[in-house]
Amino acid sequence: MTVASTDRLILREWTDAPTDLIRIFEIYSREDVMRWLGGGAGRLLEPEQAAERLATWRQRYAPYHGRYGLWAIEVRDTGKLAGSVLLKPLPGADGHTPTQDIEVGWHLHPDSWGHGYATEAARAVLAREFATGNRQVYAVVTPGNERSMAVCRRLGMTYVGRRSEWYGGTEVETFLLTAE
């Protein structure tokens, strides 16, 4: 199911197709990706875990009926899966309970860095969210992740400092975008 699209990208549900599962593994088994997602090498994905990861995402976002989720970023011209874009309620101080604060984020394979895909995909899901009437969306970034902070700035997000009320109290660089 397509969630949004741009001239270059199709944002869609991840599927059980072997090509999708292989790409989930290729993205979430990399230290250079996972080090920014809270857990690093201790959370690297094994090949047989890709389907489990997909099932977890589906279960986690099912209650939102497509409004929130973690979706594949597919490059329209090539069919290549660049990574994931997400839009979801931020988990609270306990690390699990959803808050009213909404997060946009992205996880791309390094072979897709530097092409503007994260910014373009995030803009598409942000426009979709703002069309619902929500007036603000956050991005939270692991300190030191300069690439993601640059995406936040390209999106026009305002830096609001380091905060720790989400993700079980983990301190994150926080950016905010308010609808015009």
Rank of each mutant, 00 (worst) to 15 (best):
D32L: 03
V33M: 06
M34P: 04
L37C: 05
L37V: 03
G38P: 03
G39V: 10
G40N: 11
A41Y: 00
L44T: 14
L44M: 09
L45F: 02
L45P: 07
P47N: 11
E48K: 06
E48G: 13
E48F: 02
A50W: 02
E52A: 15
T56D: 09
R58H: 06
A62E: 14
P63I: 09
P63G: 13
Y64D: 10
Y64A: 14
H65K: 14
G66M: 06
R67Y: 00
Y68S: 07
Y68R: 08
G69Q: 06
L70K: 11
L70M: 13
L70I: 14
W71A: 11
W71I: 12
A72L: 10
A72V: 03
I73C: 07
I73K: 07
E74F: 00
E74M: 10
V75M: 04
R76A: 15
D77P: 05
T78W: 01
T78K: 03
G79H: 06
G83F: 02
G83T: 08
V85N: 09
L86T: 13
L87I: 15
K88L: 14
K88D: 03
P89W: 05
P89M: 08
P89G: 09
L90A: 15
L90M: 14
L90E: 08
L90P: 06
A93T: 07
A93M: 10
P98Y: 04
T99Y: 05
T99E: 03
Q100L: 14
I102L: 15
V104F: 01
V104I: 11
V104P: 07
G105L: 04
W106E: 10
W106C: 04
W106T: 10
L108D: 15
L108W: 03
H109W: 01
H109L: 04
P110T: 08
D111M: 05
D111A: 12
S112W: 00
S112F: 04
G114A: 12
G114P: 08
H115E: 12
H115L: 10
G116F: 01
G116L: 03
E120G: 13
A121F: 00
A122T: 06
R123H: 14
A124V: 06
A127P: 01
F130G: 12
A131C: 08
T132N: 07
T132I: 03
T132W: 04
G133F: 05
G133V: 05
R135H: 10
Q136N: 09
V137K: 04
V140C: 15
V140S: 14
T142A: 12
T142D: 12
P143V: 10
E146C: 02
E146H: 10
M149H: 08
M149C: 14
A150Y: 00
R153V: 10
R153T: 12
R154T: 05
G156C: 14
G156T: 14
T158K: 09
T158I: 12
Y159L: 10
V160W: 03
V160G: 06
V160Y: 02
G161V: 09
R162W: 01
S164D: 15
